[in-house]
Write a protein that binds this DNA or RNA. Structure first.
Lengths: 225, 225
DNA sequence: GAATGTTTGCACAAACTGTGCACAAACCGT
DNA sequence: ACGGTTTGTGCACAGTTTGTGCAAACATTC
């Protein structure tokens, strides 16, 4: 199920959007204001951000630019019908599409689906600015690369691809080393340790995402508190 | 996505240009001053350079000539409406087109698109003065040719055509030798070694671009630090 | 067919990664 | 609070992968 972050300063608008989207199998998270939205984007993975540009404190533009400084998450702006220049401004700041208010349900859904289709199904995973790119064999946080060894890279990928799912040490060995591996003991633990250390160095709060499940194994959490 | 290098001494003009171009799916890089621009052109691949001729320290003309001494990247000059002779001078120094200030968005986009269209879809790749020309079967750095053997040539081409992407040894063998090749062992390594040595001789910093991905294969990076 | 140039891969050295022990720290149930 | 169990950490050695010199095999040219 796709996750959508709704950002607006009015609770009524958030509820309305959620009402439209939820029955169509989208998981909505509501953020009232830019600060809250930023916290969400920094700690969770969303498939789309729906962003009203008319907000007090921090404007939608500012938020859009802030998000773009570390993430490629698709952004759709909500603008008033009249402000043509707002649309242009938003697109220039990195938004992917826009919807003018007032809008109807069909248009909203169509634009969301179109944008999701556009996202190439590359083997790239991103959460809170941390990007795992299989093709480039590269993990990076906000643009700066994190050097990993092959085993480390695949282990992170395996966990990242299945957020929330617990993997036992044996499972990880099977998935990363293969069926006939004789690897055992605290080897996995060592790799986890190395991965944590390297990602921690980059500034990403890895200790809140890559968790130990006591007595079982490890898991990656996208959503942290 | 096409990459455009913007060169001006005024930050406001850089921002304005970027604001015009970014929403039209161009990736803009801003260079404030000729020195900075030169560093970019020497280390990255751009599809177009947009160059203001009115700059302190080094003039746009000088920069244009400097770039042309080692690269064929398309250059568009920005000139003041009045200086007709500047336009002639610029074109003589190797610029491909010009735009007079003040300009509007449509004109800018039209000229950029026209210039990109004009660029025949040649199998020519260029980055930082290193030029790979399939038609002429030639690799050269700043005009001086680098003699490569066929296998070496195609290997460089394959990597150069997919900057950032990692290729395993098996993949490279498949791509360059074909499906029924029995080539194996350290053959690829030997070719990489030879390629590195030959390109290094030319003065191009190949060791920062043609990288070993430990345990996986090789990749070519256009953007180096 | 001799000369020249290209491709391939061995053998060794160098660089880097994987592994798991030993002990400390954290955790859990009672 | 206590003992048993599980996980974290420092570290060293074994193992793997890559770089390099060199030469034989192969291909092309004249």
């Amino acid at each position: 199920m796709q996750k959508i972050l709704l950002v607006d300063d009015e609770r009524r608008m958030l509820d309305l959007l959620s009402l439209y989207l939820t029955p169509h199998q989208y998981a909505c998270t509501k953020a009232q204001g830019a600060q809250e939205a930023l916290r969400y984007v920094e700690t969770q993975a969303f498939d789309i951000v729906l962003l009203d540009i008319m907000m007090p404190e921090m404007s939608g533009f500012e938020l859009c630019a802030k998000i773009r400084s570390f993430s490629d998450v698709p952004i759709i702006m909500l603008t008033a019908r009249e402000q043509q220049e707002d649309i242009v401004k938003g697109l220039k700041l990195g938004a992917d599409d826009y919807i003018t208010k007032p809008f109807n349900e069909e248009e909203l859904l169509a634009r969301i689906e179109a944008l999701l289709r556009r996202q190439a199904p590359k083997n790239i995973i991103e959460v809170g600015g941390l990007k795992w790119n299989e093709e480039r064999f590269e993990l990076s946080f906000r643009g700066t690369p994190i050097k990993l060894t092959p085993k480390e890279f695949f282990m992170v990928g395996q966990l990242l691809k299945n957020p929330g799912k617990v993997f036992s040490r044996d499972q990880l060995i099977l998935l990363i080393w293969g069926y006939d591996s004789e690897t055992e003991g605290r080897t996995i633990d060592s790799h986890v340790r190395n991965v944590r250390e390297k990602i921690r160095q980059s500034g990403f709060p890895v200790d809140k995402h890559l968790l130990t499940v006591w007595g079982v194994g490890y898991k990656w959490l996208n959503d942290i508190e």
